[in-house]
Amino acid sequence: MALLELENVQTSYGAIRALKGISLTVEQGEIVTLIGSNGAGKSTTLKTISGLLRPSAGEIRLGGQRIDQLPPHRVTELGIGHVPEGRRIFPRLTVAENLEMGAYTLSEKNAVADGIERSFKLFPRLRERAKQLGGTLSGGEQQMLAMARTLMMKPKILMMDEPSMGLAPILVEQIFEIIAQLNQTGVTILLVEQNALKALDVAHRGYVIQTGEIALDGPAAALRADPSVRLAYLGEI
């Protein structure tokens, strides 16, 4: 049984159908990437999984349990961590408080302290910034904080929405290294990216989404080699 399954999921904004029946699976321990152009429905897919949007049809299952009618905080409690597009750091909470928010669902006594310590090990920059307000961080630091914050909740699956967006190339490299590194420690990852090349390099499998439908799917390497993908998303001929 796959860890996360989407079966014919449809989501609409008012009269506009953004997802026209998405089916995909993520297995335990995998990195799966969802690539596609602007407005194809990548973010909508993640928001629908995490409960920010409610699907009008279809099923979403986490470890076999239906989650598609749950409010977002319940989905989070069940183990889906969603790093939203544009990082969405709480601008007027300190870095440490932002991290604490990530551990909101955990009740163990040391969850916060341990989690913060782990985060600082993974992202040493954050340690220096611990007392600073989230809004004062640079884009790269905010991305690190956003990832660290979601990791605080020890999610069963980590969903990332465009983690490389708006970052300098050197930071992009770093972010993808960290993604690979996280995966090696056993974190399952669903990655949404416009930077298809990088995403396919790091992922095991991929899905190509086009105007709300899955157009192609397969092992990352196969997609990487597919001529239509290369033409449309990798800028190669």
Binding site: F90, M101, Y104
Partner: peptide
């Protein structure tokens, strides 16, 4: 307090607070 911090988080960004597991 934890609830107080959640309150501030909700004030600053409601949907992200929900993603953190806060019952908005």
């Amino acid at each position: 307090t934890k609830v107080g911090k959640a309150m501030r988080a909700v004030a600053q960004d409601r949907s992200t607070a929900a993603l953190m597991g806060v019952n908005v």
